[in-house]
Simulated assay, not measured.
Amino acid sequence: MAGQETGERIETLLDELAQQAGPEARDTADELVRSLVEFYGEGLARAVRLLGAAPQGADPLAVLTADELVSDLLILHDLHPEDTATRVGRALDKVRPYLGSHAGDVEVAGLDLEAREGPTLRLRLRGSCDGCPSSTQTVRWTIE
């Protein structure tokens, strides 16, 4: 769908929402659309800044994926050059020093990208971190 057609479709959907659910729902939906536009606008602005400031010969995808927001947008649209397992491994590497300082570790027990309820990652905490609620939450936040 072209940009103008998409904009018109959004406006039509917002009007339908206002008719079906009332003006308060329309106001909330308008705010949602503004927030999404702002979010994507910031992602695009960052991408332009990053690419403009990148050293000559730098890999553009490496430049873009080094930024958390741009990387998240690439993931959201299945455009990230690294697969899920690689990204999970990198996230676990970020949390391992914390876990290691508590005589613990984490390993992937399973990654099911085809699960009916959506991609499912199962982790196993090792050492003193096994069963520790704060370790579990730290790993969860890092991965998510």
Score class of each variant (00 low, 15 high):
Val106Lys: 06
Leu51Phe: 10
Leu92Phe: 05
Asp27Ser: 13
Ala91Gln: 14
Tyr40Ser: 01
Ala109Thr: 01
Lys94Thr: 12
Arg116His: 05
Ala103Glu: 11
Asp59Gly: 07
Pro81Met: 01
Leu61Gly: 00
Gly110Arg: 03
Asp130Thr: 08
Asp59Trp: 04
Glu16His: 12
Glu107Ile: 08
Glu114Ile: 00
Pro23Ser: 13
Ser135Cys: 15
Arg124Gly: 07
Pro55Thr: 11
Glu68Ala: 13
Pro55Ser: 11
Thr84Arg: 12
Ile10Leu: 05
Ser35Asn: 12
His102Glu: 11
Pro23Gly: 09
Leu13Arg: 10
Ala66Met: 11
Pro55Lys: 14
Asp67His: 08
Arg140Phe: 15
Phe39Ser: 10
His77Trp: 10
Gly118Thr: 08
Gly110Phe: 01
Glu117Met: 10
Val48Asn: 07
Pro81Lys: 02
Ala25Met: 05
Gly41Trp: 05
Thr120Cys: 06
Glu107His: 03
Thr136Met: 14
Leu64Cys: 01
Ser71Thr: 06
Thr138Ile: 14
Val108Ser: 07
Trp141Ile: 15
Ser71Asn: 10
His80Leu: 06
Pro60Phe: 06
Thr86Arg: 07
Val106Ala: 08
Ser35Met: 05
Leu13Glu: 06
Leu13Gln: 15
Asp130Arg: 13
Asp72Arg: 14
Ala47Val: 01
Glu8Asp: 06
Thr28Arg: 11
Ala109Val: 03
Arg126Phe: 03
Thr65Tyr: 00
Ser101Lys: 15
Gly57Phe: 01
Glu117Ile: 07
Arg87Lys: 14
Cys129Arg: 02
Arg90Thr: 11
Asp78Tyr: 05
Thr138Glu: 14
Leu79Ala: 15
Val37Ser: 09
Thr136Leu: 13
Glu24Thr: 11
Ala109Tyr: 02
Val88Ser: 01
Ala91Asn: 08
Gly127Ser: 08
Gly43Gln: 02
Ala109Lys: 05
Ser134Pro: 09
Val70Pro: 07
Gly100Asn: 13
Ala25Leu: 01
Thr6Tyr: 10
Met1Cys: 00
Asp27Pro: 00
Arg124Val: 12
Val88Gln: 07
Val106Cys: 04
Gly104Glu: 05
Gly110Lys: 01
Gln56Tyr: 08
Ala47Phe: 05
Gln137Lys: 15
Ala115Asp: 13
Leu113Arg: 12
Trp141His: 13
Ala54Lys: 06
Val95Asp: 02
Leu111Lys: 07
Asp78Trp: 04
Cys132Ile: 07
Arg34Trp: 08
Ile75Met: 10
Arg124Asp: 09
Thr65Met: 02
Gly100Ile: 03
Arg124Thr: 12
Arg96Ser: 07
Gly22Leu: 06
Ser128Arg: 15
Gly118Lys: 08
Leu121Ile: 09
Pro133Tyr: 10
Asp72Gln: 10
Glu38Gly: 11
Leu76Ala: 14
Thr12Val: 06
Asp78Cys: 01
Arg87Gln: 12
Arg122Trp: 05
Leu61Pro: 01
Gly104His: 03
Thr12Ser: 10
Leu14Trp: 02
Gly118Asp: 03
Ser135Glu: 02
Glu24His: 04
Arg46Glu: 13
His80Gly: 09
Asp78Met: 02
Gln19Cys: 00
Arg34Thr: 04
Glu11Val: 14
Glu24Tyr: 00
Gly100Trp: 06
Glu38Thr: 15
Ala115Ile: 03
Gly89Pro: 06
Pro60Met: 04
Thr12Gln: 14
Gln19Lys: 09
Val48Arg: 15
Arg46Ala: 13
Ile143Tyr: 11
Ser71His: 05
Gln4Ile: 13
Thr6Ala: 10
Glu31Ile: 03
Ser35Cys: 05
Pro119Cys: 07
